[in-house]
Amino acid sequence: MEVLSRLLRRLPRAANFSYHPKCVQLNLTHLVFADDLLVFIRGDLPSVKAVADCLDTFSHFSGLHANPSKTDLYFGGVAETVRDLILDATGNALLVNSVIFGLHTFWGASVLLPKGIAKRIIKLCKDFLWGIDDGWISTYVLKGTSLWDAQQTVSNSWYWNNMKYRTDTMYGYLRTRRPLVPWAPLIHGTGSHPKHSFTGMLVMNNGLPNLDKLISRGMCFINRCVLCECSYEDIPHLFFECEFSKSVLIVVAQWVQMPLGSFSLAQIMQTNLPTRRNVKQHASLLATIYYLWKERNDRSFKGPKSTVDALSIVIRKVVTLRLYGSNVS
């Protein structure tokens, strides 16, 4: 097969040979899988004769011949008159009967392949089809676009056109859809830093690993707030029943003129939904949550302790930099 492969690679040198339209940029004439061969050419008589001559040359030197009973021709977009001429000229003697993973299937059924070799074979097959820069699909189907932006066309196969549709449908089916929570606009509004928004979302979903939660999992045995050192630590206490966190919130709220009807985080979230006029309040509230949680972690792991004024200044500077791109005096 190596000799035949070399002969087929020389086909483009023949003046009467033309590449298959989908194989020009890849300079692809054929694929060999075990004892099967696929040949790709333009659907015209001169190209077919060039391949037939190549097979005859190989048969003359090797004594091997293509088995007509195991040979198939596949046409696409070829006029019926041209197809009849090709069939008459070749006697249906082109061996094109395989699939892209034929090599892996053949050897896998015959011998026990090492895991590394099996992965390498699969990777080669996938790279041929899905290579980022020079794969067949990226070159002739996607044509520089992404899978999600590719449009359905009549030149693509039915399977390909329906694969994208089914992928979109499956994503919509698997995606969990839940009612919008009241505090969602505050978390996903504009102005705040992504890590501040993420921490705020964890707080509202009770997702932070506070001491109350760690004790319930048997990972901790002492529950004492490290910020005020006088109460149990849970989410409601940290935000903002704790005297330390409450004091920080009051200072920040005075700076951004945010009204505080209570110190319940849920109520604060619902009464301070973001608008164009209170982006600063929204960003400051989420920054306060983030830096209080950071302060809690610093103290838990023997880090430095910040005062209420020091932590408030940090929050003020970070929010100002985020919103206006300049520091404050």
Rank of each mutant, 00 (worst) to 15 (best):
166 R>E: 14
271 T>R: 15
230 C>Y: 04
262 S>W: 03
122 I>L: 15
42 R>I: 00
121 I>Y: 09
146 S>T: 15
157 S>K: 09
215 I>E: 05
24 V>W: 00
156 N>Y: 12
323 L>W: 06
103 L>C: 07
150 A>E: 08
63 G>C: 01
248 V>C: 06
140 Y>Q: 07
58 F>S: 08
296 R>N: 07
224 R>W: 00
209 P>V: 01
46 P>N: 01
247 S>C: 02
309 D>R: 06
74 Y>S: 15
247 S>Y: 01
7 L>Y: 15
227 L>D: 00
146 S>C: 03
3 V>E: 13
160 W>P: 07
287 A>T: 15
224 R>A: 01
284 S>N: 01
283 A>K: 03
241 E>A: 11
166 R>I: 13
228 C>R: 05
201 M>L: 13
275 T>K: 08
287 A>W: 09
164 K>Y: 04
159 Y>P: 01
59 S>C: 13
102 G>K: 10
87 L>S: 09
14 A>L: 13
107 W>F: 14
21 P>N: 01
185 P>D: 10
281 Q>I: 04
66 A>P: 11
308 V>N: 04
314 V>D: 07
32 V>F: 08
313 I>Y: 12
327 N>E: 15
10 R>H: 06
201 M>K: 06
41 I>D: 04
57 T>S: 12
256 V>C: 10
101 F>G: 10
43 G>F: 03
74 Y>Q: 15
328 V>M: 11
30 H>C: 08
157 S>I: 10
183 W>D: 08
284 S>F: 00
216 S>L: 05
276 R>Q: 14
